[in-house]
Amino acid sequence: MTEDEFGFRIRQALNEGAERLDYKTTLRLEKARMGALARQRHAGPTTVRLPALQVATAGGPAETGDRRWLLGAAWVTPMLALTIGFVAIGQWQKELEITRLAALDFAVLLDNGPLETYADRGFGVLLQAERPTAR
């Protein structure tokens, strides 16, 4: 008997054995099959999730370079705006201070300054210090 013939006879015996499975086993196999079929994967339209930045540049040339540039711009722009904001606020505060000092000087020159100004020791020292130069 050749190996193939032997294999064929074993196959027949194994098939017989497989057909004689008890009811409980066949039922559980059937349940397993139904469970598997319920979870079958279907090839449908593939949904690809893209980052928002990539969507914005979709279709543009040299996507990789553009995206890198935009990512850099996304960092630099807010930083730049913040710096400009700080400088503007600083300038505005400086202008306010100058205006306040000018109003005070003007009031002193017109003798309209508040009484506390003349009672202030520092103001007296200032007037004493400025008198020689005024001459």
Partner: peptide, 30 residues
């Protein structure tokens, strides 16, 4: 499924485990 169960039985020699193996294989292929 029957042949698969038998093959699993030949390997693990436990009906419950063989059924689990076949069930897992069915789930995975599906």
């Amino acid at each position: 499924e029957r042949r698969a169960f038998k093959q699993a039985m030949f390997a693990v020699r436990d009906e419950s485990h063989a059924l689990d193996i076949v069930q897992d294989a069915m789930m995975k292929i599906a």
